[in-house]
Nucleic acid binder design. Structure first.
Lengths: 211, 211
DNA sequence: CGTAACCTACCGATCTACAGGTAGGCGAGT
DNA sequence: ACTCGCCTACCTGTAGATCGGTAGGTTACG
């Protein structure tokens, strides 16, 4: 019966770590603060994760689990699923904040999350390219290819997250993301006719309440 | 002759601070490390900037100076100037890294740079909207308005910076940015004909050397 | 049954390292 | 003489990590 008890506790700690990192970043997050949240002392926490970095690794693995839902899963995403993902994210500022903070820190020298993000983005770009090519074939507006549009799609998601985190009232993240998709779906008169791009657009309210 | 000597030293310190922040972020940057770089002790540095936060403020002001070149300057930018800006940035990874790291940290609670970035992005979005509307009028591909495209343009710039910092060989930031502009300039068959969008495209090499 | 051996889950004390900041002083230029 | 530029000395706080221990729970076995 003691079996799995430890794993459970670890998961609890990881959850707390996510919170603390969201609030203070990785460098600013102290083991003591995390420990306190689960009713442990700092030393008690170190019993489960021998170093601070080990805890971070667990946090990153946790993300891989629910975000890419199983890593490089073979089932391909579709653009409308990404729309849902953005909407989902918009309801979980905490999670978004955690990983935006980590992303920001990771560009720093010798940051323990750097390799993780580098590899992750390479993989995300590939996924995005697959999604785009499944949706549009090889021809996108402006003469772009899926491979060239992939970094843009990725960039928009991340960039919007920062703007949204800084001022949620000024940026309607899901709406803005849909706007970007509209850009991709817009039939391009100069190139060729949109391959299989439909034009079934949803009724859209404006995405700029503030400012 | 001692006049201005102090200001000069301060500028030197701010430059060093930019470097250190790029390497370790704001939280990870120690006054001692900055001081060492200009041949001072930590306390010597505190003579010029009484607190760490004061130094950060100076760093942020410095950015406002050369990036928006004088703050909310009346002279409007144009899209091709932003293209140049991105190219310019691509040659200065240090600066980009500094402010990407700060941006990432700033979404954290009680971060001293948070207000700065919040206000800054509101202003940038406005500028972007102005630029877009000067370039395209009120009609963009996909039925977007300048106000709705502005957050996207901003997001793309930031998002690309992160991807590029993490793996400069995998992402050709300037080329990717031009790709996005192409998306904006692509004549939209569904909407109206592109307002004043020319279609003079530059010869473009592909922007994905790695992966 | 009982007890020795061992493991898990922690906590208290303590070490080392910086970190930011204060107080006061000293030398040099004006 | 006085201020400016900078340093030495020092204080306080905090962080990650190690060490040693304790309490409770098995398991092995005589």
């Amino acid at each position: 019966m003691a079996r799995g008890r430890s794993e459970e506790r670890k998961a609890e700690i990881v959850r707390a770590a996510l919170e603390v990192i969201a609030e203070r970043g990785y460098r600013g997050a102290s083991l003591g603060a995390v420990a306190e949240r689960v009713g442990l002392t700092q030393q008690g926490l170190l019993h489960y994760f021998p170093t601070k970095e080990a805890l971070l690794v667990a946090v990153l693995e946790e993300r891989d689990r629910w975000d890419t839902s199983g890593g490089r899963d073979r089932e391909r995403w579709r653009l409308d699923l990404m729309e849902s993902l953005v909407e989902y994210n918009a309801m979980r500022p905490g999670i978004v904040q955690t990983f935006s903070a980590l992303l920001g820190e990771s560009v720093t020298e010798d940051h323990p999350a750097r390799a993780f993000f580098t590899e992750r983005y390479a993989q995300v770009r590939e996924n995005m390219a697959d999604v785009l090519s499944a949706e549009f074939g090889e021809t996108l507006p402006g003469g772009l290819t899926p491979e060239r549009a992939a970094p843009l799609l990725t960039a928009v998601m991340d960039g919007l997250q920062f703007q949204w985190l800084l001022d949620p009232d000024a940026v309607d993240m899901p709406a803005a993301f849909r706007d970007f998709l509209r850009l991709l779906r817009a039939p391009d008169a100069a190139g060729r006719g949109g391959a299989l791009a439909d034009s079934g657009q949803d009724g859209e309210r404006n995405g700029r309440p503030g400012a």
